[in-house]
C-alpha cells in the first residue's frame, strides 16, 4: 500500500517539475520499479506462487491413501458443496464475524474516545491497561480463558453469578462454545482497534470542535457531525482488518475447543488445518484454501465498493 503511494507521489513531483524534466521522470519511474522489484519478487515467490499452486493442487485427489496425485477436476469442490460440515463451518465463521466485528469496533471507538479525554496522569495507565490484552500472545491468552470459562471453578461464571445469571458450561456447551470464543476474541482484539482509533482521533484538528462549540453543538452532535465522518477512512481500515482477522480465527479454536463440541466452533482455517494436516487430505485442503482466498477477495471488494461511496478522504 505504501509502495503504491510512493509511485503516485513521485509522478506528481515529476510532472510538476515542468518540461525538460520529462526524461528524468521516465528514468525515475524505471528506478521506482527497480526498487519495488525485491518486494514484488518476495510476493510472487511466497504469496502468489503458493496461491496458484494450491489452486492447482485442489484439482487432484492427494491424500494418505493415494500418495500419488490423481487428477479429479472439480470433484473436491463438489464434495465440499455436498458436505453439511462445510456449510456449518461457513455458518460458524459468519456467526463469529457478526458477533465479534461490530462489538470490537464499537468498543474500540468508545474506549478510544474515553482515553482521549483529559484524564491527567491516569491516562497513561488507562491506555496501557486497555491495550494489555492485545500484547499477550493469543495462545497464552486462550490457555488462560480455558480456565476463566471453566464451568466449576472459572472466573466468568463466578462473576456472572453476582449478576444472578445462570451458570453455563461455556466451552463445553454446543450453544455457548462459539459465543464464549467470541467474547474472548473481543477482549483480545479491542485494544488494537482502540489504538488505531486513538491515533486517528488525535489527527482531528481541535478548531473544528471549538467552532462547533461556538455554534452550540452538544457532545452527541459533535460526535456525529465531526468525529464520526472524519474517522471514516480509519473505520474502513479497521473494518477490513476486522473482516480479514475474523476469517483467520484459529488459535483460540485450536487451544480452547478443537472445533468441538460437535463441530459447533469449527471455523474455516481450523477446517483447512484438519483436512490438510490431520486427515492429511491435501487435495481437499487445497480446495478449501482456494475457497477461502476467493471468499476473502469477494468480501473485501464488496466492502470497498459499498463503503467507498460514503467514506470521506481528506483532500479529495
Amino acid at each position: 500500500m505504501s509502495n503504491s503511494t510512493a509511485v503516485v507521489n513521485l509522478e506528481g513531483v515529476a510532472s510538476r517539475a515542468g518540461p525538460g524534466a520529462a526524461t528524468w521522470g521516465s528514468r525515475c519511474r524505471g528506478g521506482t520499479y527497480l526498487y519495488l522489484a525485491p518486494a514484488l519478487v518476495f510476493l510472487v515467490v511466497f504469496t502468489y506462487y503458493p496461491m496458484g499452486f494450491s489452486a492447482y493442487l485442489s484439482l487432484f485427489q492427494w491424500n494418505v491413501l493415494t500418495p500419488e496425485k490423481v487428477f479429479v477436476g472439480l470433484e473436491n469442490y463438489l464434495t465440499l458443496w455436498r458436505q453439511p460440515l462445510f456449510w456449518l463451518v461457513l455458518r460458524n465463521n459468519l456467526f463469529y464475524a457478526l458477533g465479534a466485528i461490530p462489538a470490537t469496533m464499537v468498543l474500540g471507538l468508545f474506549l478510544a474516545i474515553l482515553v482521549n479525554q483529559k484524564l491527567g496522569a491516569a491516562r497513561g495507565i488507562y491506555r496501557a491497561a486497555l491495550f494489555y490484552p492485545t500484547m499477550i500472545p493469543m495462545v497464552a491468552a486462550a490457555m488462560l480463558w480455558v480456565w476463566i470459562f471453566n464451568p466449576g471453578i472459572g472466573l466468568f461464571n463466578y462473576y456472572t453469578g453476582f449478576l444472578g445469571l445462570p451458570r453455563l458450561d461455556w466451552l463445553y456447551d454446543r450453544h455457548w462454545a462459539l459465543p464464549a470464543i467470541i467474547i474472548m476474541s473481543i477482549w483480545k482484539n479491542f485494544g488494537y482497534y482502540m489504538l488505531i482509533y486513538l491515533a486517528a482521533l488525535q489527527g482531528i484538528p481541535g478548531e473544528l470542535y471549538e467552532a462547533a462549540g461556538l455554534e452550540g453543538a452538544g457532545a452527541w452532535a459533535r460526535f456525529w457531525s465531526i468525529t464520526f465522518p472524519l474517522l471514516g477512512p480509519t473505520s474502513l481500515f479497521v473494518f477490513v482488518v476486522a473482516i480479514i482477522s475474523s476469517f483467520q480465527v484459529f488459535d483460540q479454536v485450536f487451544v480452547m475447543t478443537q472445533g468441538g463440541p460437535a463441530d459447533q466452533t469449527n471455523v474455516l482455517i481450523f477446517y483447512i488445518y484438519q483436512n490438510a494436516f490431520r486427515f492429511w487430505d491435501l487435495g481437499m485442503g487445497a480446495a478449501l484454501t482456494t475457497v477461502f482466498i476467493c471468499l476473502l477477495l469477494v468480501l473485501i471488494a464488496l466492502v470497498f465498493r459499498a463503503v467507498g461511496r460514503w467514506v470521506y478522504y481528506e483532500g479529495e
Binding site: R174, P261, D263, W280
Partner: peptide, 22 residues
C-alpha cells in the same frame, strides 16, 4: 484403520450430537 484421524472425528461428532440429545 487407515486414516484413523478422520474416523475419530466422525465418531466424536456423532457421540457429541447424541449426548446432547440432538
Amino acid at each position: 484403520a487407515p486414516n484413523f484421524q478422520k474416523i475419530r472425528e466422525i465418531l466424536k461428532k456423532q457421540l457429541d450430537d447424541a449426548v446432547d440429545g440432538k
